[in-house]
Every structure is written in C-alpha cells, then in structure tokens.
Computed example of a mutant assay.
Amino acid sequence: MKRNRETMDFIVDFEVNPYTMAIIGEKMDNDQIVYSRILEVEREFFVKMKPSMVMDKSCKYFGSSLRGRQEGTKQLIGSTYKAPIAVDPSSDIYMFPTVSPYKDNCAWLSHSYILNFQSAGPDKTLVTFTNHKTIILDVSKGSFENQLNRTAQYRFLLSKRISMTKSNKKQTRDHFYDD
C-alpha cells in the first residue's frame, strides 16, 4: 500500500521493544525507498529503514545480529526459511517474518501480540492484535499459521533450554558451596 508522506509520523531511529507488535515494509507515494511502518501497542509511525535493517539493528542492540539470531534458530529447531527469532528472550520479544526476511515487503510480527487471524481472501490474512487493531497481510492463512506455530515451538524450546541452563548453574553453584 502506498501512503502520503505528509500525513504520517516519522522517527529517525528505532529498535524493537516490548511494545512493538509489527514492522511492515511499505513504499510511499512514488518513492522507491522502502520504509518500515511500526505498529506499537499505543502508537503507529514510520522509520526510514527496510524491515530487515530494523530487525538487524534491533538484534545488535540486544547483542547479536539478525543473521546470528537466524543461525541460533537453525541450531535449535532446524528452521532456516522464514525463521522466527528471539530479538531479546529476556524481554520475551520473539518475532517472525511473513515472507523472506530480506524482501522489502516483509512484515515481522511479535508472537506475543497475535490475538487472532483469519483468511481475508486468496493469499491474504487478517491479523488481529491483542489491542484489537487489525492489519491485512499479503500471506495465506496457512502460511501465517505455520509461522505462528513454528514461533511457538521455537519459543518453548528456547525457554526450556534457558531454564535448564539456569537450573544446572544453580545446582553447580550449590554443589560448589557444599564442599
């Protein structure tokens, strides 16, 4: 969808945060530049960066990179195509792409904010967020559902691994002090 630049709010710099629901690649007017429309719980704005750049910058803010997070996902669940990522597992920020993450029209959605979804026609899905805002994405309901489920699986396995590591660390520490 093309938008009129004068009617939208723009910000210069942005990282994904616990209030980010979606990052959607869009072009404006006759511009060839791709912007990211950012949907947060209580506001919406644009940033002059492609979604993949926003995601990479956000991952770097939390100590990795988009490629690094994707490699971590591959290691844990074997998924490489449209892999969900943990932008920051300590803040419970898990996101998934709707198409190849490096395409300009990619949308990244936060797993935590998806309330519901339904078909909105051929290769279109209506997504309802927990704040009841809705968007229509250019992705089939089946593909969207697969991405949502894969993210849930990844989230569960990573959380399990993190808590096992914490438990092992505590046992090791307790054993060390018992001696």
Rank of each mutant, 00 (worst) to 15 (best):
Q147S: 15
K141P: 02
M164K: 05
Y113G: 09
N4W: 03
D29F: 01
K27V: 09
L66T: 01
K27I: 04
V54M: 13
I135T: 10
G63S: 11
I114G: 02
F117S: 14
T80I: 06
R5V: 13
H175E: 07
V87S: 02
K48Y: 02
S163T: 13
D88C: 14
Q118L: 03
D179L: 05
V16W: 03
T128C: 15
S140L: 00
Y61A: 07
S119Q: 03
A86W: 06
D178R: 15
Q70R: 12
T172R: 15
V87D: 10
D31M: 00
M95P: 13
A86H: 04
L137P: 12
A86V: 01
L39G: 00
Q171K: 11
Q153M: 08
T125L: 04
T128N: 07
T151S: 05
I33G: 09
G142N: 12
E42I: 12
D56P: 11
T125I: 06
I24K: 08
D138R: 00
F96P: 08
M28C: 14
L66M: 09
E42C: 12
Y19C: 11
M95A: 10
I136E: 14
I23W: 00
T98V: 01
S143Q: 09
S112T: 05
I38S: 02
T128E: 13
K74T: 10
N30E: 07
Q70E: 14
S91I: 08
Y19W: 11
W108G: 01
G78K: 11
Y94E: 10
V54N: 07
L157P: 06
